[in-house]
Simulated assay, not measured.
Amino acid sequence: MLRIALFLLTNLAVIVVASITLNLLGVGHYLEANGNLNLNSLLIFCLVFGMAGSMVSLLLSKWMAKRAMRVQIIEQPRTQEEKWIYDTVARLAKKAGIGMPEVGIFHSPQSNAFATGWNKNNALVAVSTGLLQRMGRDEVEAVIGHEIGHVANGDMVTLALIQGVVNAFVMFFARIIGHFVDRVLLKNERGYGIGYYVATIAAEIVLAILASVVVAWFSRRREFRADQAGAHLVSPAAMISALASLKAEYEQPSEMTGELVAFGIRGEGKMNFAALFASHPPLDQRIAALQQQQSY
């Protein structure tokens, strides 16, 4: 969840800042002499800058995560607990066939963990203090296996590619909306007026939020795969137990922060509008999927 949230926020910030800068500089030769839009030029322009925004977010993801979550990197384990975490990540990474990630701990009362990084041999795996306090070692190992699974499956790179395409279409349609507002509604016939820039930026923000439904759907599919990886690297029983512990923790209202509610990590299986934006499937569905695989 933290991995996806940080990536999406960074991506949105990059795209909005880039759009404002490009608009102010007048970059983009997609307006023809007769005042019509050259849709081919516009699409190429949007693909280039949309993918660039996503790639910048990907390259910054590890740096952003370390600072946003105040991750303490374990370079030389100082305690038995740190040594166990470091050795567990090393063993599971080797089993998954990826390079040794950086290993870190961040302070949070909730059970949480994330993995990020621009390639599978240069990743970061971090666990929360709440996770270490609340779960047994088999469950923590399964959670680490889940995060290693994200790295081994190349989820961050694939997410970046999908987000890049989404960015391109957001920029494309936002500029068409801005053009319509400027030319049709405001009757501006020379170049672009202030209405175009305001409408384009506003449309980009709204369309980016709506387009995040697509990215969230993809993220939910990848969570099932990461659960399978955790079950394979550790054991199905440990992965199911870890998810059940999360479900018990997050079903307590006092344990649910606004951020966790927003990302739909609770155990209910009900579909609603907010669930469309959830980066994780309901825990009940994840547990059921692993139990079903166990029965075969």
Rank of each mutant, 00 (worst) to 15 (best):
H150P: 03
V151Y: 02
A152K: 00
G154M: 02
M156E: 01
T158S: 08
L159V: 02
I162K: 07
V165T: 08
N167A: 03
F173H: 06
R175Q: 06
I176V: 11
I177A: 04
G178V: 05
H179C: 06
R183P: 14
L186E: 14
L186K: 13
Y192L: 14
G195E: 11
Y196I: 12
T200D: 09
T200A: 07
I201C: 01
A203W: 02
E204V: 01
V206S: 01
V206M: 03
V206N: 02
L207N: 01
A208K: 01
I209N: 05
S212D: 04
V213S: 06
V214D: 05
F218N: 00
R225Q: 12
R225V: 12
D227I: 09
D227P: 08
D227H: 06
Q228R: 12
G230L: 00
A231K: 03
L233Q: 02
L233Y: 08
V234I: 10
V234N: 07
P236W: 08
I240D: 03
S241V: 08
S241K: 08
A242E: 03
A242T: 06
A242M: 06
L243H: 06
A244V: 12
L246I: 13
K247P: 11
Y250S: 10
Y250K: 09
Y250V: 11
Q252E: 15
P253R: 10
S254H: 13
S254D: 15
S254Q: 15
M256Y: 11
T257M: 12
G258C: 11
E259R: 11
L260Q: 12
V261K: 15
F263P: 04
F263T: 11
G269C: 06
M271P: 08
M271T: 12
